[in-house]
Design a protein around this nucleic acid. Structure first.
Lengths: 219, 219
DNA sequence: CCGCGCTTCTGAACATTGTTCAGAAAAGTA
DNA sequence: TACTTTTCTGAACAATGTTCAGAAGCGCGG
């Protein structure tokens, strides 16, 4: 009975076609521009067919969100190998920002959409956080790096989760404002990111001597 | 001829009615829920009438944006009197965050709407910034405070605009993430704001001795 | 008080959206 | 070939923002 297998394969193929069409639209024009009829046109099926593969438009967004998050993770590959934990932490910030600036549509879908696709990454099911959620696992990488900094004695002891969330929200602030209205920011975004990461690190440092030489001049 | 005056008054009154109805809807349910027909129902006029007072839905959003920004400014009243410039800078950050957290719908309308109402505040007409724009004037207050810190010798010399934008984007990051998906942040938002402001200030400081005693423990 | 003209207003329409569902079409099975 | 199951779609529904021809109201000159 290879028939059921073939059918399943065809079904998966069509699902992937839908996703591919949706991906293209979202990456080109943003999630708001994603329309069931547009997808239908692209895959040469009736819009109603899409509902046999996805519950609704938001479910497609959720699927794309997963992909986008993988994409974000892939930006972190390089930093994982940085030995110095403080440099690694700064690297995470800079690469995170680079992902957002280079992939604005994906970043908006992930972190700037009201419908809270964020909750797809951070399980809020029953209020308790599941450490296996992709978002939680990625954030754990940040927390671990912070802890490594503390262990190495380069930053003052403190709650690594709090420090990690400071780092995240901080960089997110730059990226999201830059994506919403770049002209509102006069400074070059890259400089903003780099200087903020350095200043933050300096603020956390046990002794300014450790980082003073690395801090970029802000003039 | 008091007639033309009365007509003008009535016209202005209706405009204000529209704005009031829209304001209520936006504050209650957010800008996405703002519907021409809903406004029409509220003011007991046909939806078409609204177009005699506003170019379109977005224009109403722009008008509400102006109000919301005034509201934000009003949160800064208390901090302007703080003598110590570094404390004033931190106060700006904390009050800014408080505005966002206490008025989420307004904050979203101002700084988290794609249609870039932000550009209403920061003139991007002809690419050049007009220092008279409300947003620009408010940001100037931040820059002035940063400059005062530098002059007082409590933070290291640097570009006050860059430092100001770091401060702004930083706090915006916390607020916007908290408003998009509060459950993604484990730490209490107020603590996040306070600690980040302190850490940032410490990172800018000329000597850690100046602020070390004031820095909240991050444990 | 009447009738003309201007302002103010509205009903109906248009195009577009997500979503549903009865039934057509196709595919598989016997 | 006849029956069943799966796959698909046309048409419809209820919203949305926006437009516009014409109705209604109002003020002014007679």
């Amino acid at each position: 009975m290879g028939i059921t297998e073939r059918k399943e394969r065809q079904r998966a193929e069509l699902r992937e076609q839908i996703l591919a069409a949706a991906r293209k639209i979202v990456l080109d024009e943003g999630f708001d521009a994603l329309t069931m009829r547009k997808i239908g046109d692209a895959i040469e099926y009736s819009p109603a067919t899409i509902y046999l593969h996805f519950e609704n438009r938001e479910a497609i967004g959720r699927a794309l969100c997963g992909e986008a998050f993988e994409h974000l993770i892939s930006y972190m590959g390089a930093v994982a190998q940085i030995e110095d934990p403080l440099e690694r932490l700064k690297g995470i910030g800079r690469h995170y920002a680079r992902f957002g600036l280079e992939n604005p549509k994906e970043y908006k879908l992930l972190f700037m959409t009201d419908t809270a696709f964020l909750e797809t990454l951070f399980g809020e099911i029953s209020g308790t956080k599941d450490p296996d959620d992709p978002g939680e696992r990625a954030f754990q990488f940040v927390v671990d790096t912070v802890q490594a900094c503390i262990d190495a004695g380069v930053i003052r002891p403190g709650d690594p989760v709090l420090i990690g969330e400071m780092a995240w929200t901080m960089v997110h602030g730059i990226v999201s404002l830059a994506l919403t209205c770049r002209s509102a920011l006069e400074s070059p975004v890259e400089e903003l990111v780099a200087t903020l990461c350095d200043t933050f690190a300096r603020g956390l440092a046990t002794s300014p001597a450790h980082v003073a030489s690395e801090v970029r001049s802000t003039t």
